[in-house]
Design a protein around this nucleic acid. Structure first.
Lengths: 126, 126
DNA sequence: ATTTCACCCGCAACAATGTTGCATTAAATA
DNA sequence: TATTTAATGCAACATTGTTGCGGGTGAAAT
């Protein structure tokens, strides 16, 4: 098992995600962090956060990927099978605190993971 | 209203999607079409197909985007609000013929579009 | 059938996004 | 403090998506 190290860059990114209160893309983090953190480092830290179960990926309808901190996850079992809401106006992505409703798959299909993203207008933007 | 034109490149792409029977990414189309069609042209034709309501985009969990032909769509109302299944083994994406189950959004949130992607193992791969 | 017009194609160039290798830095443990 | 090794920054590369433009072509009008 590879050792995990707490670095300032990693802490900064986690804090940034916490302060934002919603998911951020690599590009957004890059802008916020300014020149305090290398572009490549951000990629690597985000990957590591996902591996370590501290964050999860959210793929939006347009193909962009955002990263959200996990609330109730650990390395064993990730429980981020909740829907995400993506605002078309302010483009913030928030986690909805509910379970994703299940669908019955056709015969012999085996489900492993589900992604449920709703886009529209968030409460702040109305 | 801009006029729509039937070109050989466009027909080829539509036929390719029909023959495949499942959604294809730009990269996959580029390989299949070989050097019969320019990379940029594929991008533009796919965009146009979506605009014209002949195809719809499917964004997978990893951020890649695939394109699927619409079965019951027209320029007026798109009815591709169905779940998609993405096989982790053969990586094919198929449309599931059912409605996406709805979730109750928090107060003041307004829904406009939903994306529901299930990944796992498809019937063919088992 | 020919002309005409606007859409469409291919090419080149660019922009944005993501990856890899390597030397250096720094966190954690002894 | 010294040692070990994960993590960073930089450069270089690879992939993916976009834009402008000259020339080609579909389709309607003549």
């Amino acid at each position: 098992m590879k050792q995990v190290r707490t670095t300032s860059a990693k802490s900064t990114i986690v804090e940034t995600l916490e302060e934002a209160g919603h998911a951020l893309s690599h590009a957004e983090l890059y802008v916020i962090l300014g020149n305090t953190c290398d572009r490549v480092t951000i990629y690597r830290i985000l990957s590591r956060l996902v591996e370590e179960g501290l964050a999860h990926r959210v793929a939006l309808q347009d193909g962009t990927v955002k990263f959200a901190l996990c609330e109730e996850c650990n390395t064993e079992g990730h429980h981020h099978s909740h829907p995400h809401f993506s605002c078309n106006l302010c483009s913030t992505v928030t986690c909805l605190t509910m379970e994703i409703p299940v669908v019955i798959l056709p015969k012999k299909f085996k489900m492993e993971e589900t992604s449920y993203v709703i886009s529209g207008v968030c409460a702040t933007c109305r």
